[in-house]
Design a protein around this nucleic acid. Structure first.
Length: 593
RNA sequence: CGGGACGUAGCGCAGCCUGGUAGCGCACCAGUCUGGGGGACUGGUGGUCGCCGGUUCGAAUCCGGCCGUCCCGACCA
């Protein structure tokens, strides 16, 4: 790869024509901003706006300016190379999709308002694709005949649209975004598992090449469905996801899914008894009033359920006082589509009192977290105003269904090895799913097997958030001066800064510009009539990894200066410049910041 | 959808409380000086004060409605 980069310019330069096309700064559209835009919160959003990579068009929808497009192309090319190397074949599917396919999979009803629906002039129902399982299944179903055509892995890099409730953080959570999505089809589940591992490994190569600190974690499958799933998270404090990982073993999972163990509370057995708790309803108030540990309380939350066997009903959900309900887990336990906190009147209808609800004697289904299974001597709401119950014995007093419902906390024990769990924030940049026959069945992706029987293919899907990656890289690669792109992601490898407008400087710059290009480097020549400070500030803001300075002072000695962004520049003989700069580029290759 | 903040020049902001010529910094244009880390001076350009309505002799300012943006929550890959 290194070799190709430096030497094979005829092919590489052609292939990367946009990504590394050289540019004179005065001809380039790079609108940089001196101040942080007021409506940007996270660092990647601020810097991508300030450095002239993106501009907002409308809520959650952005223009990619020339610099932004260059970086997007760089990310795409890494993804594309690794996908191709892993056996994927690229295709392109439409953004507009007919409702029929979504009705066939059942997601027209299930997907909710995130799916942007509209009618065309013939009143035909359509939607903008948030993902492409339906379309690819429809395509493959039409063409697949024999097991001999399997396996196949088809992918695309394309815009998606999801009508997010709350787009935010710039590219991090837009409504329109660029995604690489791959879909694999297999004759049997064993082969799907093989491909799942293959994609998992490809993803690790991709994120490694992008120079990211990342972690693969077990994940919930969300609205995509299927059995196994892993997410790839870039570790960053600004991340929207919480991931739990064991400090000792390899276990790591999104908190939506992460299991963990905690000790049984050490309550003492006693007769069930009421206790007055005037105006004390929150966990904090009750623990303070009764001087007990929150771990000895039962927190009871009332939910209104949509979908599944409890559709339209209210259920009581209990966790310990110092735990939080993990609603994704609850959703699965109930096999429900959606949850909402019950209104006070709904709580009263099942014999509860808002603020003092408890599982004892409540007239609705009760789900309790596993950590309460053998708990005794607990304190719970009494379903009466200003009143709680002492010495609740779960086995004796409560008729409950137990399930894993609590969110893993830092310090809990690992379910695999018992080690301590820790929590980190992550930006989800990729996810792999073993879907099984969730889509191939309804959309009839069938083939004739070796034994002559007609069988349904099994399927996997694999996504990477390409535009989100651009933000994630900036989150990890920046400093006070601006963006610090890894060499392979940078819109240009090197910025050539000319000091002054003198003829000698211009001529030397021009020559160097040409010879750097010829060596295969992407060069931005800053020949603007600006003061040096402005040029340096802009170069560092937009994040070009290498700097070359050509000035009259140095040229008199036959030298220019070269260095990496954020470091010291050193004098280099003009004759050695290209070799030195190429060597500098080489030293940055693959370096993780 | 609930809670909060905000909307004045390309960007960042003041003015609003207490109604009376629309301002500041940066950017932009012209010129002079300068010339190795967002330089100085002089003179300029640029605004339906988010929109609609109301109160008033007079509204950026007060009142009502709407739209948009950001933050927190709920939701989501």
């Amino acid at each position: 790869m290194v070799f190709r980069f430096i030497c094979a310019r005829s092919t590489v330069m052609c292939y990367l024509s946009l990504a590394y096309r050289p540019m004179r700064y005065s001809h380039a559209f790079i609108p940089t901003l001196r101040d942080d835009p007021a409506d940007a919160e996270v660092i990647s959003h601020k810097l991508l706006l300030r450095a002239g990579y993106i501009r907002r068009v409308t809520s959650g929808v952005y223009d990619f300016l020339p610099l932004g497009l260059r970086v997007l192309r760089r990310i795409e090319s890494v993804v594309r190379e690794e996908m191709n190397a892993a056996g994927g074949e690229e295709l392109l599917m439409p953004m507009v999709q007919p409702s029929e396919l979504w009705k066939a999979s059942g997601r027209w009803e299930k997907y909710g308002p995130e799916l942007l629906r509209f009618n065309d002039r013939h009143q035909h129902e359509s939607c903008l694709g948030p993902t492409h399982e339906e379309v690819i299944c429809d395509l493959v179903a039409r063409e697949l005949r024999s097991y001999k055509q399997l396996p196949m892995n088809l992918y695309q890099i394309q815009a998606k649209f999801r009508d997010e409730i709350r787009p935010r953080f710039g590219l991090m959570r837009g409504r329109e975004f660029i995604m690489k999505d791959a879909y694999s089809f297999h004759a049997d589940d064993a082969d799907l598992q093989r491909e799942y591992q293959n994609m998992f490994a490809a993803y690790q190569r991709i994120f490694t090449r992008l120079g990211l600190k990342f972690r693969a974690v077990e994940a919930d499958t969300g609205s995509i469905g299927g059995s196994d799933s892993h997410e790839f998270h870039v570790l960053a404090d600004s991340g929207e996801d919480l991931i739990a990982h064991c400090a000792v073993c390899e276990y790591a999972a999104n908190v939506e899914k992460a299991e963990s163990i905690r000790s049984v509370p050490d309550g003492e057995a006693a007769e069930l008894a009421g206790v007055d708790t005037p105006n004390a309803s929150s966990i904090e108030e009750v623990t303070a009033f009764l001087s007990v540990d929150a771990a000895l309380l039962i927190k009871t939350l009332m939910y209104q359920v949509s979908g599944g066997e409890f559709d339209g009903k209210v259920v009581a959900v209990c966790v310990r006082g110092d735990d939080q309900v993990q609603e994704i887990k609850l959703l699965h336990a109930l096999n429900a589509d959606a949850l909402e906190m019950a209104a006070d009147t709904e709580i009263e209808a099942v014999g509860g009192v808002a603020g003092f609800v408890g599982p004892v004697g409540i007239n609705c289904p009760v789900l309790c977290d596993e950590s309460l299974r053998d708990a005794i001597g607990m304190i719970a709401g009494a379903n009466a105003v200003h009143s709680h119950l002492r010495a609740v014995d779960m086995g004796r007093d409560v008729a409950a269904v137990f399930a894993d419902l609590r969110q893993t906390r830092a310090g809990d024990n690992c379910p695999k090895c018992g080690g301590a769990m820790a929590l980190s924030r992550g930006i989800e940049v990729g996810q792999v799913f073993a879907l099984g026959r969730r889509y191939t069945q309804p959309l009839e992706v069938c083939f004739q097997a070796q034994n002559g029987k007609r069988e349904t293919a099994t399927m996997g899907c694999y996504g990477i958030g390409v535009s989100r990656l651009m933000a994630a890289i900036v989150e990890q690669c920046h400093d006070d001066a601006g963006i610090a792109w890894p060499l392979e992601m940078a819109p240009f490898h090197v910025v050539l800064i000319s000091m002054g407008q003198g003829e000698v400087v211009v001529q030397a710059s021009q020559d160097l510009y040409a010879s750097l290009q010829a060596s295969g480097l992407g060069v931005l020549w800053d020949e603007r009539k600006e003061r040096p400070g402005v040029k340096f500030k802009d170069a560092e803001l937009i994040g070009i990894p290498l700097q070359v300075v050509v000035g009259e002072r140095g040229l008199k000695e036959g030298v220019i200066e070269a260095g990496v962004r954020g470091g010291e520049r050193s004098s280099v003989l003009l004759d050695d410049a290209v070799a030195e700069i190429t060597a500098l580029a080489e030293s940055l290759r693959g370096a993780v910041i």
